[in-house]
Design a protein around this nucleic acid. Structure first.
Lengths: 354, 354
DNA sequence: AAAACGAATGGTAGCGCTATCATGACAGCG
DNA sequence: CGCTGTCATGATAGCGCTACCATTCGTTTT
């Protein structure tokens, strides 16, 4: 057969002389590779996807043809035919917050090594946006979906509940839809509050930014508050309206000192805020921790490089991503997961700032 | 017709009683939506993709049916049929370096608003890895590809040169394959070196990390070196083998002081290193800039919060991402781009550290 | 020796959608 | 009144690949 291969003629050949539509695309196809290799298309497909299902000679000639023709597999077609895509949807609420980026990094290095690609979505802390992203991503027949957090809106929940692929919810710990890797933020808040009380502080303010969005920071406050309540202490909360940043931390410090002059210690929702406050305190000639003690959350490297070192809670973020990816891969390759829920824990890092 | 819709019978109906294969997927299809809406599948398709190409009544009943059936479009099938995917491949060399994350953020906020999704790839500064990623991404019929940097290996270059979709190379400025948004790193290096000389420093060391990988930092050194040479000064280079980080910066400071005791100023390849050195200097009781002047590159927020403020060069990273995205969208929607090359420039931010 | 089995390969028919062409209806125009 | 142009809709045929069976052939089992 000639190599322009008009494939089969249409069933009823009564069509007149008018040549039917012919959408082309100069792209090299698997059929061309197969032809060059002297095998059938399906064998060529197997040679690439299930190398040990074909003879050595067949595999070799297919690979040679691939090389020679510069064949690039059309993954879209493959996915449609097999309804598997090797795409993993990853949905995070923010890219400014380096915490999520580190999780993504952990996910990516593990998933890419296994031949999965990441489809990235950013909700900007908007659950409706999350729903839209999920819808889109399901349309791509993703192999799995990773999302930050256990909270979703109604529509999103319904959609995901009826989806028959692995779902991994990361960051926090709790009763999720499927798989879950995270840490207990309430406990983390309690841990830090206890530390501050142990250190002798009694007037402690919690400072967070946009807690309605960053509800995990809110959970830490809940833990913090419960400890203080148990000690019979007030647990004032200062909520900033800006995003967490060094700048916001500096402003937080100012506001706390104005509103609660007797404050001995500030428990910040994260290290960006805390470090910003610490650096600002230094600029103002305040002594940390004598004049004011400062604590954060995350364990960012910056905290270890300021003087005094920042007291913080170290959360294993990249590890969280790696673990999540590993569990997903395990599930995707048909094995059972060890556990549906993983507590990655956290570590109190007491520095000189408290 | 019954609603199980076996669609058309195969051309020659001489097949025996054996029911042919039937791969199912409980997923709601566009045909079902069309049926429920009382229109043909193609009209349903148009109602969703080209709303103004159908009558109001048709559009309405299709949208209703979509809602009622919970239809989620199969984007894989759509992409195969139309060979357009609304996916944009983004390839960066690292996610640790926040610089790339900020570019991604700029890209994403702009692209997502236009209904594009990001396929993210990380090369870890490995050009062969980049080639693999490009191959994979081309297989997804991406609408466009964004990659950090102008350097690619031979195979990658060939592949991209024959690809007929927009290619956007970001970060640095130069003769690219297609579109280019970035800044002139050699000029940035010259700029900072000139600043240091203007300030009266004569013994200046450049400190970078893994310059063979981070060749843009190397280009800045080239600029730095040329200025110093013009002034008849030595331009010693200290290359660290770790990745750029606060910790590495602290080590860089130590090594410089040991190897080049007369050093008056250190020009660091980026702000992470510089800030790490500045904080380390403070811990060691060194006066910045009297004992040692320190300069960085990037304009990270951290630099503005340390005391003294870090002298650095501000690069518009998010802006770079946004601009790149806008140009891509412009191109993808058929309009001509204004220019193929955009210089986003940079700004010297002189702080107290020099 | 016959039957049963497994490995390698191939023919066929879709996966769910959209590009292309065709059609019918209706308005505008000489 | 027929001609052309525009609009809304539909029938058909793939996009490039892989799942599903069927077939062949060489090897093992009874």
């Amino acid at each position: 057969m000639s190599k322009d291969s008009p494939s089969k003629v249409s069933p009823n050949a009564d069509s007149p002389s008018t040549t039917r539509q012919r959408r082309s695309s100069d792209q090299v196809t698997l059929s061309q590779v197969a032809q060059a290799a002297g095998v059938s298309p399906i064998t060529a497909s197997r040679a690439l996807n299930y190398p040990d299902k074909v003879s050595d000679s067949a595999r070799l000639s297919v690979l040679q043809a691939v090389e020679q023709l510069g064949y690039v597999p059309n993954l879209v077609a493959g996915s449609l035919a097999s309804s598997r895509s090797r795409l993993i949807a990853v949905i995070v609420p923010s890219l400014i917050n380096s915490v999520f980026v580190e999780v993504i990094k952990g996910l990516q290095e593990t998933l890419e090594a296994e031949g999965y690609q990441i489809l990235l979505g950013n909700t900007d802390y908007d659950l409706d946006r999350e729903y839209q992203l999920v819808r889109t991503f399901l349309g791509w027949s993703c192999s799995a979906l990773v999302t930050a957090g256990l909270r979703h809106n109604k529509a999103c929940h319904t959609l995901l509940a009826n989806w028959d692929h692995p779902i991994m919810e990361v960051m926090e710990l709790g009763k999720g839809m499927d798989l879950n890797v995270g840490l207990d933020h309430v406990a983390a808040g309690r841990c830090m509050a206890s530390h501050l009380i142990d250190k002798g502080y009694r007037h402690i303010v919690y400072v967070g930014a946009r807690l309605s969005q960053d509800y995990r920071a809110r959970m830490r406050f809940d833990g913090h508050q419960s400890v203080l309540k148990e000690e019979g202490l007030d647990a004032p909360l200062l909520e900033l309206d800006t995003l967490g940043s060094l700048q916001a931390g500096a402003e937080g410090l100012t506001q706390v000192l104005a509103q609660y002059p007797h404050t001995q210690a500030i428990h910040f929702a994260n290290d960006d805020l805390a470090a910003g406050a610490l650096l600002a305190a230094q600029r103002q000639g305040l002594n940390v921790p004598k004049d004011i003690a400062i604590a954060g959350f995350n364990g960012l490297p910056l905290g270890q490089h300021v003087t005094p070192q920042l007291t913080t809670i170290l959360s294993p973020r990249e590890e969280m991503g790696r673990l999540a990816a590993k569990e997903l891969i395990r599930r995707l390759s048909g094995k059972n997961v060890y556990r549906r829920q993983h507590d990655v824990g956290f570590t109190l890092q007491a520095g000189g700032s408290t």
